[in-house]
Amino acid sequence: MKLHIDGVSKQYKGKVALANFEAEFTEGVHALLGPNGAGKSTLMRIIAGVLRPTSGKVCLDGESTVAMGERYRDVLGYLPQSFGLYKNFTAERFLLYIAALKGLDKSVAPRKVAETLSLVGLGDVGKLKVGKLSGGMKQRLGIAQALLNNPKVLIVDEPTAGLDPKERIRFRNLLSEFARDRIVVLSTHIISDVEVVAQDVYLMNRGQLLAKNTAEGFLADMVGKVWTLTCAEREIGRYERKFQVGNVSRIGQDVKLRILSDQAPSIQAVAAEPTLEDMYLYYFKEEAAADEVHVVDAV
């Protein structure tokens, strides 16, 4: 199975949100990484068929998804970045409604709904009204609706936002298992999610594809570009002006800086093992600072 993004562009009132994006997704998890406004959500919406591209097309196994219409929607699961739910519905009724819209047989739907609720850890709150659920539970309900029709193509935009660490681990495992014979396109700010589950990573900024590689490939590229340096606190400013400084941690009276630079920033600097967070900072610099990239090392 191949999902081909064929030179897709999108403009909003003359402003380019996505420019000639090319990619080919096969079975596995493919992560889109980039700061706010990079065009990730626009791309996800276009892949999901919610938005029509200004030019280009999305093809599944060589056939345009627009032309496929209902046949494409039958194999599609989609979780948007932000969504609302019918507050007066119970979680179970909500999923039954979505099951009806997805064309699940009436005889199968209740069992499938119960299974999916249990899969996302909401098995015991099925009778609860959606309005009474916490933010994390609503997010899980959103994930459940995307999985309900056992999709072959799953598009998830920031799926782990609002989930606690335990739930994030559960979802990551679920996604890895799910992606064995399915295409999963994931957009996230949480770099550790990408590191663990993604088979390849697409870096996007200002509507363009900056680079594509595996997580390991990106890390390998960063070798020799990450340094640690211990210095006095008053020297921080000097280094910040000259280099891209990542983490700053205090060690007694001094501070330890993590610096991104193609050359050693000082003779005292020691080469460090790169992480994906370093890679993100290296590529996105100011945008990363503005976005406050979420790094969840504990997970």
Binding site: A48, G49, V50, G77, Y78, G84, I98, L101, K102, G103
Partner: peptide
């Protein structure tokens, strides 16, 4: 309520 995006991707769109 913000359900439109999800419903647009269902078989009955």
């Amino acid at each position: 309520v913000g359900m439109a995006e999800i419903e647009l991707t269902c078989r009955i769109s």
